Simulated scan of single mutants.
Amino acid sequence: MLSLLLAAALAQGTASPIPTDAATLRADIQAADTAFFTLFFERCDPDALSEMVAPDFEMYHDRDGVVARDGKSFIALYAQGCAARSRPDAWRSRRALVEDSLKVEPVPGFGAIEEGEHLFYERKGDGPERLVGRARFVQLWQKDGQGPWRLARVLSLSHRAVD
């Protein structure tokens, strides 16, 4: 009996602190989503991005195919994009979540599934920004212990141009 109690206590101490309240979970995931995409599209900090993705990160894209099969290769692709965006006349992109499309479901003992739509904007250099596309996404977020939410899997699909 003592060993069962000890095992239960240890399991509780290592359980992921995934919010059980739907509103809190949604707010947490939306904040992680915003931080990730702001960093990815509008800043250049590979070290910060590496803290936001799981080591076994995978991304699949309906136009680009298999984008990454691990976190390191994804960070390397991001760093290459950063270098290209540093030119004054480079194309720059921004992503905006369509908030009313956002759905978040818990994955007990692991994290959460996020699903929704987003819009993409582009501008050349410091030129005017324009809406250029819309897509759907499904993302799997992981929460280990007291650490941050980390993006583990991404499915990016239904990309279409916006006129």
Rank of each mutant, 00 (worst) to 15 (best):
M1I: 09
M1D: 12
M1P: 06
M1G: 15
L5C: 07
L5W: 01
A8G: 11
A8Y: 06
T14H: 09
P19E: 04
D21M: 14
L25V: 13
L25G: 06
A27T: 15
I29M: 07
Q30T: 15
A31D: 11
A31L: 13
D33C: 11
F37S: 06
L39C: 01
F40W: 12
F40N: 02
F40G: 03
F41V: 04
L49D: 07
M59R: 08
A68M: 06
R69K: 12
D70K: 10
G71D: 04
A76Y: 01
L77T: 04
Y78V: 10
A90S: 12
S93F: 14
R95E: 10
V98L: 11
D100K: 05
L102K: 03
K103S: 12
V107S: 02
G109R: 04
F110H: 03
E114C: 08
E117W: 00
E117P: 00
H118C: 09
G125L: 12
D126H: 04
G127S: 07
P128F: 02
R130K: 15
R130A: 12
F137D: 04
Q139P: 00
L140P: 00
W141E: 01
K143C: 09
D144G: 06
G147H: 08
P148Q: 06
P148Y: 00
W149V: 13
A152N: 06
A152Q: 08
L155C: 03
S156A: 15
D163Y: 01
